[in-house]
């Protein structure tokens, strides 16, 4: 009789274990997480000569991993690869100036945003005529491969700027300084990083014309993980880490950091 009872109870226990095994794996179940960051954006995600990665995104990733109680490993990811690293499972979190959009949300789950940035304009120190997006009419701006910032000026804002295709941001900066371009426009933190790295006094206009929500890309379906990351981001703002990190990486760039507050989350479901 007791043996029967014990057998029955262990059957129940087995069924329970089976159910637990069916749950899709979440980052909260891992001991170690892989975080993909950009290697090509100074002050955001940048590969140093010794091969290590540094920048605001790297520090944010490290903070989130710490809050989740995980060991973090960083891998470099370029803009075009971000979706693939997360859908293929090569990275658990993508913290790589990954702007949240409805299109991307079809395939990637976004925690955060952990930062709200704006599209902004970087000009030479002596440039005074460009103060806002409308002043780009008839001026030359660069378009970096794979980025849509220049198109947003022309199509979304309807400003007839002259778009010059360029390989990468380093080429943009060189062309701007040489007078072959009048302005660079993209995410303000990217511009701030470029200005700091260049060091010759390139100026941010703080025009702030398109809001961009920068999120943490995750595997679709990991709602539990997404909620845990959101809680980590909340505490990053509440304990002052966000303000400290923004000041550390962008404080010298002229970027307006007067308001540092937790962004409105996208929601995990």
């Amino acid at each position: 009789m007791r043996r029967l009872l014990a057998a029955a109870l262990s059957l129940v226990a087995l069924a329970g274990a089976g159910c637990a095994g069916d749950r899709p794996e979440s980052v909260v179940d891992l001991d170690e997480i892989v975080i993909a960051v950009r290697p090509d954006l100074p002050s955001i995600g940048y590969r140093r000569p010794d091969g290590t990665l540094e920048g605001f995104d790297v520090d944010v990733g490290r903070y989130i991993a710490g809050r989740l109680g995980k060991k973090a490993t960083f891998v470099p990811v370029y803009a075009a690869e971000r979706e693939r690293v997360v859908t293929s499972g090569r990275a658990d979190l993508v913290v790589a100036t990954y702007t949240i959009s409805m299109d991307r949300k079809q395939r990637v789950l976004f925690a955060g945003p952990y930062h709200v940035s704006y599209q902004d304009i970087l000009v030479r120190p002596d440039e005074t005529a460009i103060r806002g997006v409308r002043d780009l009419k008839g001026r030359r701006i660069c378009e970096v491969q794979g980025a849509n910032a220049a198109q947003r000026v022309v199509e979304e804002r309807g400003v007839a700027a002259e778009v010059v295709p360029v390989r990468d941001y380093a080429a943009c900066v060189a062309a701007l300084k040489a007078g072959r371009l009048d302005a660079i426009t993209t995410n303000d933190v990217i511009l701030a990083g470029l200005a700091i790295q260049d060091g010759s006094g390139l100026r941010l206009t703080n025009a702030r014309f398109n809001e961009q929500r920068t999120g943490v890309g995750m595997r679709k379906g990991d709602i539990e993980g997404c909620e845990a990351v959101n809680r980590a981001i909340t505490s990053m703002y509440q304990d002052g880490t966000a303000a400290r990190l923004l000041g550390r990486w962008f404080g010298r760039s002229g970027l307006d950091l007067s308001t540092v507050a937790v962004p409105q989350f996208e929601g995990c479901s």
Binding site: N230, T234, T259, A261, V262, P263, Q264, F265, G267, C268
Partner: peptide, 11 residues
């Protein structure tokens, strides 16, 4: 500052 916090409370 304020609206995002209220929204996140709902979430």
């Amino acid at each position: 500052v304020l609206l995002p916090q209220a929204y996140n409370l709902t979430l």
